[in-house]
Amino acid sequence: MLKVKDLTVRYGDLTILDQVSFHVEEGDWLMVAGPNGAGKSTIINAVAQGAPYTGSIDLAGRDIRSYKAHERARLLGILSQHHYFNYSFTVEEVIRLGRYAYTPGIFSRPREEDETYVREAVEMTGLGPLLGQSVLTLSGGEIQRVFLAQLLAQNPSLLLLDEPTNHLDLVYQKQTFGLLKEWLKSPGRAIVSVVHDLGPARAYGSRALLLDKGRLEARGPIQEVLTEENLNRVYGMDVFAWMRDMLSQWQR
């Protein structure tokens, strides 16, 4: 579905991403891991056409640059890491914008099925009670769920998620991972997500990319990438010892 070849992003003299290549197939859940500043979010930004890049990005067999904005949005959905609002739009207004790709431009009318998708997205994220509320009054986690709902209403086949469980409490973290796992079961879908928390990454991911300082350190099936040796090298610490230590806190 997504083929990325020699993706390079530079800001002036600074190389953020250096010749990164990977591909995503149907049914994949690709976890992008690595320390701060490894270039994880930049991969998402570049694919989302939000950062200047060299190299090639193919989406569903075509150069991603050859798509019109609304065509691209029907295939590719993005959840950003940071959101903040200046105006008091309602939760419903933000979610409904997710249907823009199907009714683009100034002359298209809303369609019957828009309602269905919006309703389903609201149900899946449990935002029903908040629909009429101003987004300025929401907590960070609630805002994250609003944009997740917008993304589900958009109904793309490939999701790019930048730390989807950022700001979420444990209940919603678990729920969100479960929801995405369900979403992925329909044919023709795939997910790429940037993660900090390596536990859920191993639990839910099918494959992984490990990045460090803009370079690809490892890629492949999740069990082969997130290994003790790889993680210790990239993070510069004994990752497994730390994880075991943290886990043991609950076994006393």
């Binding site: 989302a48 056409q49 904005a69 691209r72 950003s80 739009f89 823009y100 683009p104 958009q154």
Partner: peptide, 17 residues
């Protein structure tokens, strides 16, 4: 409306920003 929420979000939902 989408721009007022955020230019990046506007691009993500398929607007030719």
């Amino acid at each position: 409306n989408a721009f007022a929420i955020g230019e990046d979000n506007a691009r993500h939902i398929g607007i030719n920003t």
